[in-house]
Design a protein around this nucleic acid. Structure first.
Lengths: 203, 203
DNA sequence: ACAGGGTTTGACCAAATGGTCACACCAAAC
DNA sequence: GTTTGGTGTGACCATTTGGTCAAACCCTGT
């Protein structure tokens, strides 16, 4: 069980780490944000490195909990794709900074991935979806595509504009409103795009 | 014109900044890597912030130079898509760290984007391709899709697995060899995927 | 030879930062 | 009331780090 102080620290740490990155984050700022002293911060989480690991672990499990159980076997492949795209888009939007942070920091400190993922049921994230894709593929309802490739295609189309938001806005000369509009438009667009690409019979 | 020392510094700075990020990079390490003293480093580039800006600017123009002029008007839309996918995949692979760095640091220091992009002909990056897509759309040869959406779809599918390499490898339980194999496989796969999605007549 | 400007550096500095520690606080147990 | 153990902190430390500076080091033209 976590104490109230630990909860406040964890919330603050996520906030600060996500905004500044590992090297940019200051223990003092995290302590201030949690409303305690820096010494107390070290009392609960021995070191910056330890706090970092705990934070990433917490974040990761928090994020993946959102994607699970979106894929019910009784749904048609059309519904599965739509659910998947909507799920990813909404999650990436809500957890924009966090997802970004996870991507960047985990890639930078690659050696942490092992520690972090070991405490999490990683198979639950992708195996269910991949199995479903494989079933459709074997049944011949979709084209012959590697399930992993299909999943990566979908995630890539969903996550890229959100990660690269400032650059996309800049290069396409979009206002904030236009960008939001674009993201909203992309939800059905990606579903249709994917379905057109993988369904054997044109609708 | 750049002096030999400035060149060595720039190369070293790209290397270090890309590996460690802005906050993680040490001026001493950059100086060592360039084979000069830290004082000399400051002699050429007044401050870390200044060196950072120059580096990002240099990187950015270096990267986008690779994408240009891949889209010749005389090519068919099939060839344009294939060229585009191949171009992006190759560029993202060669400049993996740099692209990743640009994405992460520019998103973190959003305010820099203005300074950096102002010195570059940004329209050349995307406008040519977007115009081409729009022409095909108006001619009715492809489905009714926003050119910007199509471009983002393509880039997203190309860049995501490269950016998220460690996580993808981990979650899909791929070895280095299998991952490389996957990237190679993705080049024709993405082209076909996109063409299936956008072409009106099934091939 | 030497004057002068650009280049290079070791030594140094002030500020920032992760981490420690002795001590204070406080509620529950006795 | 006193003890006790968990909780919390101000003051402090050692190290790191970006940045400075006076002095040395070239190189070229005279």
């Amino acid at each position: 069980m976590q104490t109230a102080a630990e909860d406040r620290i964890m919330t603050a740490a996520m906030e600060i780490f996500c905004r500044r990155g590992y090297d940019g984050a200051r223990m003092q700022e995290i302590a201030d944000s949690a409303g305690i002293s820096k010494a107390s911060l070290h009392y609960y989480y021995r070191s910056k490195d330890n706090l970092f690991r705990k934070t990433v672990q917490e974040l990761f499990s928090l994020v993946i909990r959102k994607v699970r159980s979106r894929i019910l076997d009784e749904n048609s492949i059309e519904e599965v794709i739509t659910q998947l795209v909507n799920g990813y888009m909404e999650m990436f939007l809500v957890y924009r900074n966090q997802v970004f942070y996870l991507l960047t920091e985990l890639m930078k400190h690659e050696e942490l991935l092992g520690d972090i993922l070991s405490g999490i049921d990683t198979s639950a994230i992708s195996v269910g979806i991949i199995n479903r894709f494989q079933k459709e593929r074997e049944a011949g309802r979709i084209i012959d595509i590697e399930p992993a490739d299909l999943l990566i295609n979908i995630i890539g189309m969903c996550v890229y504009p959100i990660i690269a938001e400032p650059m996309v806005k800049r290069l396409l000369k979009l206002s904030d409103a236009e960008f939001s509009e674009m993201l909203a438009r992309r939800k059905p667009m990606i579903s249709e795009f994917v379905l057109r690409a993988i369904l054997k019979e044109p609708q």
